[in-house]
Computed example of a mutant assay.
Amino acid sequence: METFWEVFKRHGVSRRDFLKFATTITGLMGLAPSMVPEVVRAMETKPRVPVLWIHGLECTCCSESFIRSATPLASDVVLSMISLEYDDTLSAAAGEAVEKHRERIIKEYWGNYILAVEGNPPLGEDGMYCIIGGRPFVEILKESAEGAKAVIAWGSCASWGCVQAAKPNPTTAVPIDKVIKDKPIIKVPGCPPIAEVMTGVIMYMVLFDRIPPLDSQGRPKMFYGNRIHDTCYRRSFFNAGQFVEQFDDEGAKKGWCLYKVGCRGPTTYNSCGNMRWYNGLSYPIQSGHGCIGCAENNFWDNGPFYERIGGIPVPGIESKADKVGAIAAAAAAGGAIIHGIASKIRKSGEKEE
């Protein structure tokens, strides 16, 4: 398989733009500037990695989020950075043809492919609540994971169980780590996860041929190392004791803290506050709705969502908010660089056709 640099050269990307791209990717993965040379070296020498993306019980929101990635574009990840060999949602092929291809990739790249799992396996009735190609999904999961070098659990369904595993859990749905015991699993929770978090995790694994540093729950520290509360632009209102008491009151109109109307930001670890969604445009708190903690374990059973959670002391003194403008500006600049490279690749493809 071609290396990243070979793919970029074939599409007319200059060395200068390639280095800009590598620098931007380094920042998005949460790495220090000193790591740029190592990222460049990896992109010059590493071949694209085969990826199998399978689906269990889920709503496809993780895929919907992934294809909206802007930094880098999902099309660049799929077509230039990885070799997406199987995805029963995105694949052009279907039925027996695509299932046979999955089996062929497992044999051909045994021990060298990444398995991405969206959704979870139901164990009730011998797995009959989720059937793929005439077989229970739990069988497909075990079979696909056996030859994988690592497994990514996309979203809260695969990571924690999510709504399918909420009480009373009639299908006996479980997170994938209850079935896969002998492989490293990288949990990327969220309902859905942020698109750039998903692409960042894939890029790290592809470039460095290892899993990213994980926290005690198996989540990448570079994206799940801070609470949403820590990077929230409404934090100064929390510190000052200025809260929305009910939706559409004067506090809500002034943009005060949403903690008292149920915001889970103080107990939820994710990058929503600094990366935001849709190329840094917004996130729930910015749009006036509190965080429901969708990246945390059992969040469906931790309701009701619109009541204040206990155990969080409410301060009454003034304090300055954390500054996150620099992060947003850097993300916007990185998006412009990568968008330029993507345009060149697309134009090159059109000329070839």
Results as ranks from 00 to 15, higher is better:
54 I>C: 03
259 Y>C: 00
103 E>W: 03
214 L>N: 03
215 D>S: 06
280 G>R: 02
287 S>P: 00
251 G>S: 10
94 A>Y: 14
93 A>F: 10
161 G>M: 08
5 W>C: 03
256 W>C: 00
263 C>E: 05
99 E>Y: 14
234 R>T: 10
313 P>K: 05
183 K>V: 09
75 S>L: 08
158 A>T: 05
353 E>T: 10
241 G>A: 08
172 T>H: 14
109 Y>E: 11
339 H>Q: 13
309 I>Y: 09
329 A>R: 14
160 W>D: 03
190 G>A: 06
209 D>H: 07
46 K>V: 15
327 I>T: 13
94 A>D: 07
94 A>H: 13
269 Y>C: 01
170 P>K: 10
351 K>A: 11
236 S>T: 03
209 D>S: 13
87 D>N: 15
19 L>I: 14
117 V>E: 13
343 S>W: 03
25 I>M: 13
336 A>C: 00
272 C>D: 07
31 L>Y: 01
229 H>E: 10
257 C>W: 05
25 I>Q: 06
49 V>R: 13
271 S>E: 04
267 T>Y: 04
238 F>G: 08
114 I>A: 07
276 R>W: 14
244 V>N: 04
272 C>M: 08
284 P>L: 01
115 L>T: 06
67 I>E: 08
282 S>I: 08
114 I>H: 07
291 C>K: 05
64 E>W: 01
335 G>S: 10
191 C>H: 05
213 P>C: 06
120 N>C: 15
289 H>T: 11
106 I>M: 15
1 M>P: 10
182 D>C: 03
130 C>V: 01
99 E>C: 00
262 G>V: 04
247 F>P: 08
262 G>I: 09
264 R>T: 02
289 H>K: 09
81 M>G: 03
102 R>W: 00
214 L>Y: 03
207 L>S: 14
59 C>Q: 02
352 E>G: 00
346 R>Y: 09
353 E>W: 07
124 G>Y: 02
122 P>E: 02
30 G>R: 06
251 G>T: 01
248 D>P: 00
225 G>R: 08
268 T>W: 10
133 G>D: 07
223 F>P: 07
313 P>N: 07
80 S>H: 12
62 C>K: 01
259 Y>F: 15
203 M>F: 04
65 S>Y: 03
289 H>E: 11
346 R>T: 12
114 I>V: 15
130 C>M: 11
149 K>H: 14
330 A>L: 12
195 A>K: 01
100 K>D: 13
141 L>P: 10
230 D>T: 07
146 E>L: 12
